[in-house]
C-alpha cells in the first residue's frame, strides 16, 4: 500500500487499489441506480434482481451482501432519490427566503418540477412505482409529504388564519399537487411537467389563500414561464 504510485494523488488509480469502502459505496449506488432505471422502464413488479445486477454489472453475491431483497433495494433507492428531491426543493425555497411565502412556494415547486421533468426515470419511480410496491414504500411515500409540511405551514401565518385552517391543510395541499404530478407522469407526460407548474402553484396555495389569492400567484408564474 505504500508504493509511490498510490501515495501520489496525481497518479491514475487502478480500480483494485481503490479503498474497499469506496468500491462498496459505488457498487451499492450502481445497484440503486439500476433499480431506478429498471423499475421506471418495466414497472416494479416486472423488475427482477437479475435485471438489476445485469444493469449494474455486479454479481448476485454482491447484491445479496448489500440488500436483503428486491424490495430492500427499491426502498434504499427510493430513500436516496427522495433525499435529492427534498434537498433540491429546500434549496430553492430557501434561496427565495426574502420573498413573500407564495413566491417561495412557487420557487420550490418550480425546482421540483424542473428536476422531475429532467429525470423521467426518477419521476416515474418516485411518483408512480413507489405507490405500487407495498406497505413500507407507501409509508415512505407518506413520510415524504411530511418532509414538505414545514414549507407549507408558513402559509398559516401568512394567510393570517393560523389554527382556524383545517388540521389536514398541508396534506391536502401536498397530496393534491403530488396527485396531479402522478397523473402527468403516469400518462407519460413527465418530460413536459413544467406545463402544469401554474396548476400546481394554484393547488398548493388555494387551501391557504382561497381561489383569488392562489390565482394571482398562478398568473404571475404563468407570465414568468411564458
Amino acid at each position: 500500500m505504500d508504493s509511490p504510485q498510490t501515495s501520489n494523488p496525481e497518479a491514475p488509480l487502478d480500480r483494485h487499489e481503490l479503498p474497499r469502502a469506496y468500491i462498496i459505496r459505488s457498487q451499492r449506488e450502481r445497484m440503486m441506480e439500476a433499480m431506478v432505471r429498471m423499475s421506471a422502464a418495466k414497472g416494479y413488479e416486472a423488475t427482477t434482481v437479475a435485471d438489476v445486477i445485469e444493469y449494474a454489472g455486479v454479481s448476485r453475491d454482491t447484491f445479496d451482501e448489500m440488500f436483503g431483497s428486491k424490495e430492500d433495494c427499491f426502498l434504499a433507492a427510493y430513500d436516496a432519490v427522495f433525499d435529492v428531491l427534498v434537498a433540491h426543493v429546500t434549496a430553492a425555497f430557501e434561496a427565495a427566503s426574502g420573498e413573500p411565502w407564495p413566491e417561495k412556494i412557487a420557487a420550490g415547486l418550480g425546482a421540483l418540477v424542473e428536476l422531475l421533468a429532467m429525470e423521467a426515470d426518477i419521476a416515474r419511480m418516485a411518483m408512480v412505482e413507489a405507490t405500487a410496491v407495498g406497505d413500507d414504500a407507501r409509508e415512505r411515500y407518506r413520510a415524504m409529504f411530511t418532509r414538505f409540511t414545514p414549507f407549507l405551514e408558513e402559509g398559516r401565518t401568512y394567510s393570517g388564519q393560523g389554527e382556524e385552517l383545517p388540521a389536514d391543510t398541508a396534506r391536502f395541499a401536498v397530496g393534491g399537487a403530488a396527485s396531479m404530478i402522478f397523473d402527468e407522469v403516469r400518462a407519460g407526460r413527465g418530460p413536459e411537467l413544467k406545463r402544469i407548474l401554474p396548476d400546481l402553484v394554484f393547488a398548493v396555495l388555494m387551501p391557504y389563500l382561497g381561489s383569488e389569492g392562489a390565482e394571482d400567484e398562478m398568473r404571475r408564474v404563468t407570465r414568468e414561464g411564458g
Binding site: D135, Y141, G175, A178, S179
Partner: peptide, 22 residues
C-alpha cells in the same frame, strides 16, 4: 376559480383518504 380547481380539490381529498387507508 380556474378550471384546475375541481381537479385539485379531488386530488387533495383523495390524498388524505389514501394516506389514512394505506
Amino acid at each position: 376559480p380556474p378550471s384546475i380547481a375541481p381537479e385539485g380539490i379531488v386530488a387533495g381529498i383523495h390524498a388524505i383518504v389514501h394516506s389514512r387507508l394505506s
